[in-house]
């Protein structure tokens, strides 16, 4: 195989021009999907983390079981289970709903663990000081603890969000027309690898800045932990 063959197979401008509208639609869907599942997972995680502050074993143990259960199942397994399994229970779900449910369960558990660690990292004196000035438990949580908690675990939150955005690619398995799915479609009609390569490049351009940022934050964090 010559170098030209290689270029033709992976970097064909002609194929790219043909496939671009399809890829573009896929990119938009990937962004849309991210905008849906990231807040969904974050809110789920927030609920879990707030429940984690309740000092009762009747809350604590079910919570740990829930989180560990959904951290143990691979996200794709959850997704397939919801999408292909629920119809047998008489619940017909469309792809987007299945993705939303699967991601809510999976990424919610991860965001929950991160936020829990963040809340625990805020010294007890902070709540006490707030309570002393008459703030309620909820007000102290909202105005004093959560802002510090989020800031303390910001690298982990960003890192998880990056993983969630990458993870939206598994929605292709349930035929959501996101970037990877569209690229595969284009590849199968053109018999050429350029569309998949293009999808990879798009992902890289989109996410590289985040990776750079994280790499800096993480280095600083580890150095600061000594």
């Amino acid at each position: 195989m010559t170098f030209d063959d290689f270029l033709q197979a992976f970097f064909s401008v002609e194929i790219l021009q043909q496939a671009w509208p399809i890829l573009w639609a896929g990119l938009l869907n990937t962004l849309l999907l991210s905008v849906v599942v990231v807040p969904l997972g974050f809110i789920g995680g927030l609920v879990l983390a707030l429940l984690g502050t309740v000092h009762s074993r009747w809350v604590r143990w079910p919570l740990i079981a829930w989180v560990d259960l959904f951290r143990s199942l691979p996200p794709l397994v959850l997704l397939v289970f919801v999408y292909a399994g629920l119809p047998f229970a008489g619940l017909e779900v469309n792809a987007l709903t299945a993705v939303a449910i699967g991601f809510f369960l999976n990424t919610g558990a991860y965001y929950g663990e991160i936020l829990r660690a963040g809340i625990e990292s805020v010294p007890r004196g902070q709540v006490e000081a707030a309570r002393c000035t008459g703030l309620t438990t909820a007000q102290a949580m909202l105005h004093v603890v959560l802002p510090q908690a989020v800031r303390n675990v910001l690298p982990d939150l960003i890192s998880n969000t990056l993983e969630v955005v990458k993870l939206t690619s598994i929605a292709s398995v349930v035929a959501m027309p996101e970037l990877l799915f569209q690229a595969r479609q284009a590849q199968s009609v053109t018999y050429n690898a350029t569309p998949i390569m293009a999808a990879a490049v798009i992902y890289f351009i989109l996410l590289w800045p985040v990776v750079r940022l994280l790499s800096r934050l993480e280095n600083r964090q580890l150095a600061g932990r000594r």
Partner: peptide, 27 residues
């Protein structure tokens, strides 16, 4: 009942003014 702690317990994410104003606004 005002209370002052050994470890200050100021809110690190707020300015001095924000620290003092929080309860005035919220409570």
């Amino acid at each position: 009942i005002g209370m002052v702690f050994q470890s200050f317990n100021l809110y690190p994410h707020m300015t001095a003014l924000g620290n003092v104003a929080l309860a005035l606004r919220r409570v």
